[in-house]
Design a protein around this nucleic acid. Sequence first.
DNA 1: TCTGGCCCTG
DNA 2: CAGGGCCAGA
Length: 746
Amino acid sequence: MNSPSDLFDDSSQPVRAFAPALASADHGVHPQPGVGRSTHAFRPPGFPLIHHLLQPGGPRRILSVNRQQEEDGVTVRRVDEDIDGGEERPVEGGKDNLLQVKKRHGADWSEDALKMKRMKLRDGEVEERDKRREGGRDGKRREKEELKEQLEEAKERLQLLQERVWKAFGEKHREEEEEKKAKQRNDNSREGDGGEGDEEMTEEDEEDITGGMYDEEDIDGGQMEKETFSLLAASTFEDFHKRKEDRELRMERGRASRLEGEMEGSGMWMDCRELLRGDWNGGMEDEGEEGGQKFAQALKLELGSAVARVIDRVLRLYTEMTDHALSSPPASISFHQPDSGLDGSNDGGAWVGLLTRGRQEEVPGGKGDATAGHDGEKQLQKLSLPPGPPLRSEPDQSMPLAVHRSPDTRKPHPLLGPPLSTHLHPPQPNLSLHHPPLPRPSALPPLIPSVPQPKDPSSSFHTPSSSSSSSSSFPAPPPPPPPPLPLPLLHYSMQQLFSRSLPHPQLHHLPPSRKDYLSPDSFLEFSSPPAFPPLSLLSHLDPLLVRHGGRERERGVRGDGGVRGGGVVDGGELYLTGGGSQEGLSPCHLKKAKLMFFYTRYPSSNTLKTYFPDVKFNRCVTSQMIKWFSNFREFFYIQMERFARQAVREALTREGASRLGRDSQLRVGRETELYRILNMHYNKSNVYQVPERFLEVSEVALREFYSAIWTGRDSDPCWKKGIYKIICKLDSPLPEAFRMPGCPVG
DNA sequence: TCTGGCCCTG
DNA sequence: CAGGGCCAGA
């Protein structure tokens, strides 16, 4: 029923058309319905670990996910295969030695755990059996001899096993284990014929226990635990051998207290110690299913905090890696001019500035002048110019607009001319690097005189020194507004998971990070304002904070304006339950729809139904949602036209610009006024990182409008239709995360 | 006739 | 953002 028109027929559904390429570009994994997954996108190291935890099903889904990754050629090997004793296969790609080590240890860990248990049991067990069978005193001596030998042998084997365990769990664990084992051995040799009953356990019993420890229910958690620990231990792994001898000595001496003291110093392993001391040992000593379950429980508990630490470290790592790269986001619509010669005042960068109006500090959620601009737009719409080149309409000085020509020398795309800004952001692997080339306006008008180029990350990436200048008659562009808060971006489900599994206060100050490294395939790229943790983390401090701070007043969506249909505050988090569907649309749905607009401007009814699973669709609801997107588009196009007209006016006021025309292009950077307005409108709370693809689409639209206006096509009453048609083909697949019912926090 | 898109208005 | 009018395609 996608009837209307030229724009929408199923065969040309842009979503499907772009699905294969886009899937791997923007989000890594967000297949279209019915389209196979594509996971070739960049994955930050450590991501698989984190990602699995983010799955709605929780860590339990790790196995299937790993399989998927393997199928997709990702380097992570199936962990369950290792457990099963699968032969050692080389890690494809060899991308990460750490992974290799981690996996290997994961395998060893389970085997060794079994062996160790048996070993411990066998020591006492053999002892006991032999003693009972041979009552004679001579026998006892011989027995002692044998026992000593066995003990020695056991020691060696234990040593080996413990080393392996240590590799997996870290040195501190090992020390702890050694300490325990030493005590145990002492007890055994001292008591001699002491224990009974429990130690009568057979190996079959042991098998049952260990089997229970790794049964299907717990295997995932255990696996995750191992992976986590392995990852954590990696840093200390290198000096393992150095310290090995020392540890052995200490073990010989049995200086438990000293070990204890050392262990106190490493807070990182505190939880692991508890795990071992309490549940691990408890599991072994108590035996039986309870022990296994206890152990499993401990693993699960520990999992959360361990993962948190991993994530914390990853965040920190990437933050450090990319701190400088993020320095100054770009902004301004630029007329890209590779061969610019006009101004040349600045690194060859010629700038056409339509003045950026003084930018107020960009406060998340702040209003700015977006609304004002919007109001003025309606008039602009009627301001169609007469046929022929658009003439100098009076410059609208009140319009904040930054138009510049970027000095960079990117190679022009055959169709697009110079590549879009995306290509200048190397540290944005998850962005739309693989999107199909965006169309370019057929006739680009001559360009505009240049002004100094404001800081533009995209261009400064190549010409870092090009930012400062004061060459043209235009005032130097004001400093770029704060970047769009490239801070810890957490999918709301991730936040939820985090806040549940990580009540640890230290996690409330996750270091600032960059979404580009953190947002894997299915992430909604939510960010938090600087210095603010994710809202759901804040919720641990004060649930009201989340509810109030995260609530956006949505007008006219519902009378009650509240969250309906299962909205709950779960553990202090504002989160819509995905349980049942609701008849009406909530502010959350509107918010989500707006975010979806970043990807799809023309969603079909089916798409909407797919991505709002918690909405009970009927004719009214469907049309309302369609109306929403219609309104979104309207706003979008109004802004495009507005800025295009302004750019045209600017161009006309500067003679000589005409020669620059061809290869120039309008750009929509993250610091342009246009971007700011769009972001304000669709992403008011600014918790979502606008996908690069949307900027590209905006650029296309802007250029199309510019071209049409410049060439006078706007005199045709239907002049916008062609532009609509172009834009509707640029829809991207929606990230999988949007399929989730619920409401984005923030 | 229905659906959905655009435009205009409030 | 919603309502209403208009239009076009199925």
